[in-house]
Design a binder for these strands. Structure first.
Length: 435
RNA sequence: GGAGGGAUGGCCGAGUGGACGAAGGCGACGGUCUUGAAAACCGUUGUGGCGGCAACGUCACCGGGGGUUCGAAUCCCUCUCCCUCCGCCA
């Protein structure tokens, strides 16, 4: 959510920024609702002030009435009745105006929730992903003396990925990891969590994987990704599409006291996505599936530090690639590919020689105060000062089935076996090859 | 799932439909006293909206929402959460 004051004071700037994002949002409606809301508010408050004053008088009058006698009593009584009648009418007007205010506020809020975040000035302009910018590439693609196979061939050959049974159990885009495949995933999760906790300073979190609807709005998943989440209608609970959702909401409606920031969290969670919007894309293998595991990094920071924190988080994700010894590159999203929440975003991609493509294994965003405003997460800069919105950042560290793809395809040997990356061997019972 | 009990400021805790943004206490902050500290005493001590350059004014907020009333922390309905007991359960 953007700052309403900012929209009010710089409407042209906001509209220009939205043009760069190649999206649209109901800015004029927002301005109109805002104007009407403030007008109505002034009116109802004046009426309330009047009612408060008269009510006070009536209290005093009633006490006098108890002692009064004869004509004096009657005079007071009729005065009281007059006031009561006037206040009854004032009450009705207040009620009518406030109904209208509720209505306008609901529409204003709904419109505000539709507006995406605005891009940071350092974001390159561009219409879509074709105009993203490769910032750097690290690591040399391995030279094969045989034709490297894609993971959808290697997996079944080794008996570590079972596509047919996944489909039998849960339908298309589901899969089963078995034996060393399942173990490889568990090893990766453990190793990545240990890395971020021990060397990058994050605190491990085990959050709920089902969340209330508020959380989806707070993290900015709704309204845009409504179609893409699984949910339980009976209890109105939503399966998390990423641990970013519960992590964002960890400090919802809180004021963090001075000295608390920055907060770094890391959580492993399953992620559930219906992938409705991507129907028909990436149908082979485990690149795009309905259920996958991910290790997610999340930061709550003071605004003036958030862009340094973003670079640091990108580095934390790259560190995973480096230690696995898999070539990767960092891509900066252009304005047209920023998504809904981010002011600035990088993707980290691993090279997959089997399917011959760069696999997005991480997406790292600075959301600035966008999520903080939606979820009402503030901090107190110093004792006695007013609370302000924090900046939030999120990034995968990393997304699992894709890292498994990259390991399988990069570490495969001519006989179809897969060498276990050195850093993972302690987590794999010491084995060196999956065969 | 069943039966009861509860939710008031940073915390504890009072509150008869009008004097209540709310007693009292604790804590925190400022001050007096003191060489310094403690104690004692005095004072301050929430958030948000709207208007205003500002001082300030005004409105809202006693778990959330609705209702009754001229007027609600107080009465009614409803939801949520917490506690106790019973049942079930990894």
């Amino acid at each position: 959510m953007l700052d309403l004051n900012f929209i009010r004071e710089h409407p042209a700037e906001v509209k220009e920024a939205l043009r760069k994002l190649h999206t649209d949002a109901p800015i004029d409606a927002i301005l109109q609702y805002d104007e009407e809301r403030r007008q109505l508010l002034t009116e109802s408050e004046a009426l309330r002030a009047r009612r408060n004053a008269v009510s006070k008088e009536m209290g005093t009058l009633q006490r006098q009435l108890k002692k009064a006698q004869g004509a004096e009593r009657e005079r007071l009584q009729s005065h009281f009745a007059e006031m009561r009648e006037e206040m009854r009418q004032v009450g009705e007007r207040i009620k009518a105006i406030e109904e209208r205010i509720n209505d306008v506020e609901a529409q204003l809020r709904a419109a505000m929730l539709e507006v995406p975040n605005l891009p940071h000035e350092s974001v390159p302009p561009g219409a879509d992903e074709s105009e993203n910018v490769v910032v750097r590439t690290e690591g040399e693609p391995r030279a094969f003396d045989f034709e490297p196979l894609p993971h959808w061939d290697l997996g079944p050959m080794l008996g570590i990925i079972d596509f047919e049974r996944g489909v039998k159990i849960a339908g298309t885009r589901f899969y089963v990891l078995k034996g060393w495949g399942a173990r490889l995933q568990r090893a990766l999760v453990d190793w990545m969590l240990d890395l971020h906790v021990n060397e990058h300073g994050y605190t491990e979190v085990y959050p709920p994987f089902l969340v209330k609807q508020d959380c989806m709005w707070g993290a900015g998943q709704f309204p845009k990704f409504r179609e893409n989440v699984y949910y339980d209608t009976e209890d109105d609970l939503y399966l998390v599409p990423t641990a970013e959702v519960p992590l964002t909401n960890l400090h919802r409606d809180e004021v963090l006291e001075p000295g608390t920031l920055p907060l770094y969290y890391v959580a492993h969670s399953p992620c559930f996505r219906r992938e409705k919007m991507s129907a028909g894309r990436d149908t082979r293998g485990i690149k795009r599936v309905h259920q996958f595991d991910k290790v997610e990094m999340y930061k709550f920071v003071e605004p003036h530090t958030s862009y340094d924190e973003l670079e640091a988080m990108v580095n934390d994700a790259e560190d995973v690639c480096r230690r696995l010894n898999i070539p990767h590159r960092v891509v900066q999203m252009c304005t047209g590919d920023l998504g809904f929440q981010a002011a600035k975003k990088y993707d980290v991609e691993m090279w997959a020689p089997g399917c011959q493509e760069w696999l997005e294994v991480s997406s790292i965003s600075n959301c600035e105060a966008f999520q903080a405003r939606r979820a009402n997460i503030r901090y107190r800069p110093a004792k006695g000062e007013k609370p302000q919105f924090v900046h939030t950042l999120n990034g995968s560290g990393l997304a699992l089935p894709r890292v498994i793809i990259a390991i399988m395809e990069n570490y495969q040997q001519a006989d179809g076996s897969i060498v276990v990356p050195e850093v993972l061997r302690p987590y794999m019972g010491g084995i060196t090859v999956i065969k």
